[in-house]
């Protein structure tokens, strides 16, 4: 597995773990009451910062382990990585557009800030997941 594919897997796994943790914490804080009563932004901020830090840590640790097994080209990227990254970005971007439209719709109906912020947050997360998934598929099945 090449350096960029490892980073993509790391990002995908961390995003799923952080999303699940975020949902569990928000539901716990709500305690069965309305979700809009939850002080959501510190949890969301923690999730975003946590995801970034965790992705970096997992990538570094995985890189060290991979380097011990196969020191050749452990941090090397090439044209195929750049092509696959562009493909993944294109897929992820469509989810960002959908999330942006969702946010506009929620603003139009004057939804609670909680729902607007969370629509954007999950839009970012889904865009990242979809982009990562597209990259992994391209690495495994090929990119014409």
């Amino acid at each position: 597995m090449v350096y960029e594919e490892r980073n993509t897997w790391a990002s995908m796994v961390v995003t799923v773990v952080v999303l699940i943790a975020y949902v569990v914490i928000v539901l716990q804080r709500a305690g069965g009451g309305p979700l809009t009563e939850v002080l959501w932004w510190p949890i969301m901020l923690g999730a975003i910062v946590g995801a970034i830090v965790l992705t970096i840590v997992v990538s570094i640790l995985w890189g060290i382990l991979a380097g011990m097994r196969d020191p050749d080209g452990v941090g090397q990227s090439d044209q195929r990585d750049r092509d696959i990254a562009r493909f993944g970005d294109r897929v992820g971007q469509s989810f960002m557009v959908a999330a942006g439209l969702g946010v506009l719709a929620l603003c139009a109906i004057q939804a609670h800030w909680f729902w607007i912020a969370n629509a954007m947050f999950f839009g970012f997360a889904l865009a990242s997941l979809a982009g990562s998934l597209a990259r992994v598929v391209a690495y495994r099945r090929g990119l014409a």
């Binding site: 080209g73 090397q76 990119l143």
Partner: peptide, 22 residues
């Protein structure tokens, strides 16, 4: 040719079209 071994494998298996430069 300055690529990773995995990229060469992908090219050999026709899973990736190399750039004109490659």
């Amino acid at each position: 040719i300055g690529v990773t071994r995995q990229t060469l494998i992908a090219i050999e298996q026709s899973k990736y079209s190399p750039t004109l430069e490659l």
